[in-house]
Design a protein around this nucleic acid. Sequence first.
RNA 1: GCCCCGGUAGCUCAGCUGGAUAGAGCAACGGAUUUCUAAUCCGUAGGUCAUAGGUUCAAAUCCUAUCCGGGGUACCA
Length: 538
Amino acid sequence: MIERKIEEFIISYLKKNKIQNTDWNISQNNKKGFGDYSSNIALVLAKILKKAPIDLANDILEFHKEDNLFSIFVTKPGFVNFTVDNSYYSDVVNQILSDKDSFAKPKAKKQTANVEFVSCNPTGPLTIGHGRQAVLGDIISNILSWHNYDVTREYYYNDAGKQMRVLAQSCYAKYANKIGRKFESPENGYVGEYLDDIVEKIIEKYGNDLDENDEKFRTFTEKEIFQNIQETLNSLNIVFDVFSKEKSFYDNGSINEVLKALEKLSLSYKKDGATWFKTTALGKEEDKVLVKSTGEPTYRLPDIAYHIDKVKRDFNLIVDIFGADHIDTYPDVLLALESLGHRVDHIKVVIHQFVTLKEDGKVVKMSTRKANFVTLDELIEKLSADIIRYFFIMRGANSHLDFDLDLAMDESEKNPVYYLQYAHARISNLGKRFKKEVGETNKINLQLLDKEDEMSLMKKLSQFPKKMEQLHESLEPRQLATYLEELAAQYHKFYGNHKVIDLDNAELSHARMALCDATQIIFKIGLSILGITAPERM
RNA sequence: GCCCCGGUAGCUCAGCUGGAUAGAGCAACGGAUUUCUAAUCCGUAGGUCAUAGGUUCAAAUCCUAUCCGGGGUACCA
């Protein structure tokens, strides 16, 4: 990467002048007039050395020996600007063409990662909010896979708690109602239509004389709903490797172990019949309940046991993806792990904000319990997986996402997804024609590419490795989407202004086609990480 | 009350580990089509980067306060 070379150059200057590290940087310029890269090194040094920044910048300029990598010029108030030689960019194109799908892919040894996402209890169909998390988690997993991680996609859910009991009661209420018994739906019960369908199936399968406390109202319902959840995820091409059930941590005794261990450390105590986690001893403002006075643990306790289990499975990286409603709970879990002597420095938590759905220009409020939500299934009926996936990550995870249903459907032609896919398809089509009309060659002279649009496109391609590095750090899929949109814009512009197939100039034609091929390779890599198809034609 | 996000063009949002002239898409307006598939391109217009202070050679970006929107603050998950 050229940034490295520039960095090395500046460091060599600092070494020669015996200047200790300072807080300087190299930034890339998208504007004209300042070269490809600039450094603030002289501005930063000015203060320490008590010299004019412009003089320092000129000193750096003089220090630089002629080479064929980059040239330097200085602008006020003291920026050192680097203009990278064109040959660097054509080298990148060559590199892409020879490495193909593995271009820029790190060669580091395999590591393991666990990504936990969705983790929604089987009490109802997935909503649009879950959809965001599902897609986010899947793409983050793809990013890690690309960076040579062996990724385990994991779904954790509560198959034993209070919510499941309420679900069973709600189901029975519908059942009773159907067969003419009297039974009040529980307070805060589930009333969604999906339960009616399940009740129909129960009657069909088990008849209409089941007892109120029959196990089937829980087990059958859970199975049905969970199957539906998996089907929904599958239709977005999301497949999990591991399902962890909360109940297993009761059964194997690890929840009790956590309680004992915390007690031993005097980090828990009893009050009002409940067991409390003494987080105030660890710098928090309030203590939190671990076991309710009813004897039932809160979600926090099994969560701790579950995370200990994940840590013990020895992954190099653990990623938890939560909705904004969990923002206050995960620090407690991490605190517990730390105080019990477990590693937490390899746990990354990704928090995403909520989705608001807009229909007919109005915001639709959603709640699973009240059943006035729009399900992910309904969305999938209307839109393709490609579009849904893209829409969910086209905003930063930390921003609220306005999902405008009307826009996603009615204006699908103006959808950014098509813009990307079209760039890819255009190149495919062009390639076919090119083969027929121009033929092949083994001598490609990329030095012929020096037009502004060609250079801009090559520069955009050269940014890919750096982008992927940033992506690894941020785990923010939107950054890749933004990059691909920029690349597509650059490509369409190039395509519009220059003929690739020019029968009077075969040499130039080949050079341009090579540039197109390289661009297509980057699209392929990018789109596959986003889990979006790269069509040959549209 | 306290904590966490966010407030950038008419709308939806990038940019935020400080850098030079704040960007896209949509919407509006004006052009390009006997095409290498126009699902595209070119151009015009659109901004007190919520507000007020502060730090800095340099602030949309960092700090403080205020205002507005969302979420949390449960012996719900």
